[in-house]
């Protein structure tokens, strides 16, 4: 039996790497992928706790997270494609209209 703490630690590592990637990377697509990594880390934590507590509720929530992630990917990619069409770039250091 693998201790659930091992999975929770892996989930912590993945979430931190996702945050790191989000802030280090400068193109929108890779930053979006980093968000997906964070969502997956949270899924892993949900499943580890579901296994530790013996309740299936965690698995149900994982299904919802996967569904919401799919919807989010569709909308996010559509927005990124629109940005690219209008600006011909997806580099976040070249998109600085909001900078004062």
């Amino acid at each position: 039996m693998i201790p659930p703490a091992a999975f929770l630690l892996l989930s912590a590592v993945l979430f931190s790497l996702g945050v790191l990637a989000f802030f280090v990377k400068k193109d929108l697509l890779t930053q979006f992928m980093a968000v997906e990594v964070m969502l997956n880390a949270s899924n892993l934590a949900f499943l580890a706790m579901a296994k530790a507590s013996g309740q299936a509720a965690g698995q149900v929530i994982v299904l919802f997270v996967i569904t919401v992630a799919a919807a989010e990917a569709v909308i996010g990619l559509a927005i990124i494609v629109l940005i690219f069409r209008q600006r011909r770039t997806i580099r976040t250091d070249e998109l600085k209209d909001l900078r004062g």
């Binding site: 892996l10 590592v13 993945l14 790497l17 996702g18 790191l20 990637a21 280090v24 990377k25 890779t30 992928m33 980093a34 990594v37």
Partner: peptide
Amino acid sequence: IGSVLAMI
């Protein structure tokens, strides 16, 4: 972990 690092 390695492939996420490689992604970075």
